[in-house]
Every structure is written in structure tokens, then in C-alpha cells.
């Protein structure tokens, strides 16, 4: 700003002057207005990288769980990832509840991994988990009647040998935590919506 051609130097503040004059007020106001404008322009350019409306429309999925046979599981695709919905037998539920929490790496009771149905009661026969191993992201195998499903009759991750029990809890192997439970709620007795919690 220190320019030789300036003819009004006497009235304009030098850089070191601390008190703005009335003349400077207009410059400060203009500068502030410009900065506010640039901020408003920047937001659309940042927000456009967020998931678009069609992606968000698939952020939640509804699924009918009534036709899963007892002892079987179905895999749904939710937000690009597999979700396991497993219909557990009474024996499996008993087994899951009988586990001593002290044995667990990630201490959770079976009930803590369930959500209540429309009547407010837990539905222990259905277990919903994200089908991604918490170690390095592989999809664990399911086979309750064979070793392929792991030593604890839950899931077994073939990548690095993590064994999960039928509640999706890590029992053996490198995975640090239990299989993740996605946000979901019971729309009705037979339909769950995965992707959001129940509205309370």
C-alpha cells in the first residue's frame, strides 16, 4: 500500500496505525462482506462431495425377516456392505447366554446386542450384525454345522482366522471387537429397517 503515486497519503492510515479512521470503515465493511460472500460460495462446493440424494435414499433398507428359516441366515446389502440377519435356534440362544463374560475380549451380553420389537420385548431369535470382520474388513463365513463356521459355531473369518460365536462376539483370533451391530429397529414383528434407530 505504500505507494509513491498516492496523493491522499495524509488521510489514509499507514499499516502500523492502530485506530481506524472513518475513511477506513468502508474498506473494513467491504472486506468483511466479501469474506462472508466467499464463505457462502464455498459451502456448495464442499457439500457437493457429501453423499448425493440417491445414495442417501439407500442409506436405510427395510427387510422382511419372517421367511428366514430357523438356523439359517440371510445376507442383505446395506450401504455397500453385507448385513447378516440370523434366525437362531433356541439351543443357540441358550448357548449365547451361557457364556461367561470374563472369557470375552469385548465384554457384551447377548441381550446387549439385540433391539426390542414393537411390543418392547427383545427378540433373541433374530441377530442382526454387519458382516465385516473387525480385524481387516473381510466377510466372515457362516456355517453353524461345520468347522467352516469356526470353533464357536458362529462365524469364521478366513483371512486371519478370527472365530466369532453365534452372537457375533469375538472369541479367538486377531479381531479386536465383536461384529458391529448396525442401527436398526423393528417396523413390525416381521420387518426391520436397517440404517436408523427407532424414533422415540
Amino acid at each position: 500500500m505504500n505507494t509513491s503515486a498516492k496523493t491522499n497519503g495524509a488521510e489514509t492510515n499507514g499499516a502500523g496505525d492502530a485506530t481506524p479512521t472513518r475513511r477506513d470503515f468502508i474498506h473494513i465493511a467491504t472486506g468483511a462482506a466479501t469474506i462472508v460472500g466467499v464463505g457462502f460460495v464455498a459451502w456448495p462446493m464442499i457439500d457437493q462431495m457429501n453423499p448425493s440424494a440417491d445414495t442417501m435414499s439407500l442409506a436405510t433398507i427395510e427387510m422382511d425377516i419372517s421367511n428366514i428359516e430357523e438356523g439359517a441366515q440371510i445376507i442383505a446389502k446395506w450401504r455397500g456392505k453385507p448385513v447378516f440377519v440370523r434366525h437362531r435356534t433356541p439351543a443357540e440362544i441358550t448357548e449365547a447366554n451361557a457364556v461367561n463374560l470374563d472369557e470375552l475380549k469385548d465384554k457384551q451380553t447377548d441381550n446387549e446386542r439385540l433391539v426390542p420389537g414393537p411390543d418392547g420385548q427383545l427378540k433373541p431369535q433374530y441377530l442382526v450384525t454387519v458382516g465385516v470382520c473387525t480385524h481387516l474388513g473381510c466377510v466372515p463365513l457362516f456355517d453353524p454345522n461345520d468347522d467352516r463356521g469356526g470353533e464357536y459355531k458362529g462365524w469364521f473369518c478366513p483371512c486371519h482366522g478370527s472365530h466369532y460365536d453365534n452372537s457375533g462376539r469375538i472369541r479367538k483370533g486377531p479381531a479386536p471387537t465383536n461384529l458391529e451391530i448396525p442401527p436398526y429397529w423393528y417396523v413390525s414383528d416381521t420387518v426391520v429397517e436397517i440404517g436408523k434407530e427407532a424414533l422415540t
Binding site: T7, N8, I26, T30, F40
Partner: peptide, 21 residues
Amino acid sequence: IYLFLLSLLLYGSYRAVWRDV
């Protein structure tokens, strides 16, 4: 509305800078 107000401010700034020129 914003651009109109900004134009007014910028014009004011412009007049202030050029006042004695």
C-alpha cells in the same frame, strides 16, 4: 440482494480510494 449490497459497498470503497485522484 447480497450482490447489490456488496456492489454498493465496493462502490463506496472505490470512491474512498479515488477521492483525491
